[in-house]
């Protein structure tokens, strides 16, 4: 047991120092990432100006802006750049055998690597994030109560896990189809619109609204933001967290299963 913990600790430590090499690039990139937010400010200001400042789907203009900033936080947890495509690439190139022949679990290894990646990211991105939130403090109506903050943090952590297992599962599809880039593009597309990254999904009317609310994608961006803003509360909040946890378990299991059966299918040739 101790040896195992030590192994994982080493993996984490190596990944941490690996990521810290590019910290300057990171900080600048994070700040740049808020640039599209500037156009959002003006777009929604124009919308609210035209409709006479009527709330939209229960969101005031300030709510909207706070919502977009919060989804940035959520995406900082749930987005997994390169995860699925790298898994698929490893399968296609055959480099995946480096995991198969070593006494190490690939999914666990990748998860720890991501944890390290994200920890470094938060460390470096904390300053730019704090700056932007400070500048935009007028959009927030003060801190919500501690229980809500706790639920927010729980949903963020789960959104990280959900994002990881979901994308890893997509990468595993590479065992069956060698090229997953178009599948990935479709996933990105759906996740961009239906995770709530582009707009609060409760703006969607009727069937589409219900359909998108039923997808797991909303837990990647919309749900944490909605929790923080108090759009989801009481029993609904508890249910939301339970459903999110269920999705995490579901994709963790799917990821394991696809990996298990994928490896059985996998064959490597040459040296």
């Amino acid at each position: 047991m101790y040896a195992r913990v030590q192994t994982w600790w080493t993996v984490l430590a190596i990944s941490l120092s690996e990521r810290l090499v590019y910290r300057g690039d990171f900080a600048l990139g994070t700040l740049m990432r808020f640039l599209p937010f500037v156009t959002q400010i003006f777009l929604w200001a124009a919308v609210f100006e035209a409709n006479g400042n009527q709330p939209i789907a229960g969101y005031t203009y300030e709510n909207f802006m706070a919502y977009f900033l919060l989804t940035q936080v959520a995406r900082a947890f749930s987005s997994m750049p390169g995860l699925a495509s790298n898994i698929a690439l490893d399968i296609r190139n055959g480099t995946i055998k480096k995991y198969l022949i070593q006494p190490i679990d690939m999914v666990g290894f990748l998860l720890l690597k991501r944890v390290a990646h994200k920890l470094v990211y938060y460390l470096v991105a904390a300053a730019p994030f704090a700056l932007v939130f400070y500048l935009a403090r007028g959009f927030f109506g003060g801190w919500p109560d501690p229980a809500v903050v706790a639920a927010f943090i729980a949903s963020l952590v789960m959104s990280f896990l959900l994002g990881f297992f979901l994308e890893a599962t997509i990468g595993m599809v590479g065992f069956w189809f060698l090229e997953v880039s178009s599948l990935l593009f479709v996933y990105m597309l759906f996740s961009f619109f239906f995770s709530g990254h582009m707009f609060p999904i409760d703006m969607l009317p009727g069937f589409w609204g219900q359909f998108v609310q039923a997808l797991p994608l909303k837990y990647l961006a919309y749900f944490p933001a909605a929790v923080f803003l108090g759009k989801v509360s009481g029993q609904e909040l508890v249910n939301g967290l339970i459903v999110q946890a269920a999705w995490v378990l579901f994709f963790a299991a799917t990821c394991r299963l696809t990996f298990h059966y994928g490896v059985k299918r996998y064959s490597a040739f040459g040296g």
Binding site: L43, A46, V47, F48, A50, N51, Q54, I56, A57, F199, M203, L204, P205
Partner: peptide, 10 residues
């Protein structure tokens, strides 16, 4: 969707 909630932009 946006134009469900407003009649004009700018």
């Amino acid at each position: 969707l946006v134009f469900r909630y407003t009649s004009s932009l700018g």
